[in-house]
Amino acid sequence: MPEVPPLEAELQLATRGSEMKLEAELPPGTGESRGTRLARAVLGPQPIGMAFGAPYALFIAVLFAYPLGLAVWISFHSYFFTAPGVSVARPFVGLANYVAVLTDSEVLRSFLNILIFLVINVPLTVALSLLLATALNAAIPFRALFRACFYVPYVTASVAMVAVWLFMFNTGGVVDSVLGPVAPVPSWLVNQNWAMPSIAIYVTWKQLGFFILLYLAALQNVPKELYEAASIDGASWWHRLWSVTIPGVRTVTTLITLLAIIVGANLFTEPYLLTAGGGPNGTSASPVLLMYQIGIEQNHPDFASALGVILVIGVLLIVGVQRLLQRNQT
């Protein structure tokens, strides 16, 4: 499989394409009417592409760009839901919603929860998926079967998986039965200290298969000769791991970190269902859960929008920083 060019290059290509000099300087009367030439100048050499891309462009405009703009608008106004047909004033309130969000103890707690989530989820995911991918990257019996086992949780609905985990980690569930006296009291999902780590472990388990596949792809791109050369040079397996494998899969590792942050910023189903609406005292509440609870249940969409905008900016900032770091490294 040909190597996919890095995103920066793609972006440059894509943007350069749009700046492309679309019309050549031609002496008049070279076989094409002025109208078609003008059309090509405005629409590009293959205007049919606009027709092909139109439905998707429309989708982006209506269901991404416009809502994003609306979110920003709502976040700067006092906004609440009214009965249909009732029109109320929605005064501009400046940064008031943002101030409210950033001083809200529940919101700050949810950010802390995400931090806890990341601290557990990222290292665990990286270590386990790299280990399992390395083990899979060989001609071993039942390879396809193992692989299938690993990604099955990824493709299964979180609602279904949460049901099983509830069953297993419930007070007096099978996990408690196995652990006996070592089991935490109160039980995992209703324990202030264990609610968020439980979610982090659950998400690690659920997503791991996908990351194993990513690492596997990256491992298969590491030239075998590098391992052979390292072996000949007398490197131990540890050295081979450290100086061949890990550098070889670095892009995937950064990608996993990035995706983990996005997943963290996105958590909803798990805190809502697994820990019954955000855990004891909101110790497993996530920002999106608060957006739902405050924005829709409690009818403060302005507050929730501001929280959403902050999260979008946060995610884009992190993506940007990560890209920057990656570029500096290469």
């Binding site: 050549a24 070279t30 076989g31 094409e32």
Partner: peptide
């Protein structure tokens, strides 16, 4: 490939934009 300048003729026809 588009032609930035000059002309290409095949037979009797200028082909720049064909």
């Amino acid at each position: 490939e588009e032609i930035t300048g000059g002309t290409i003729r095949i037979g009797d026809r200028v082909m720049n934009r064909v």
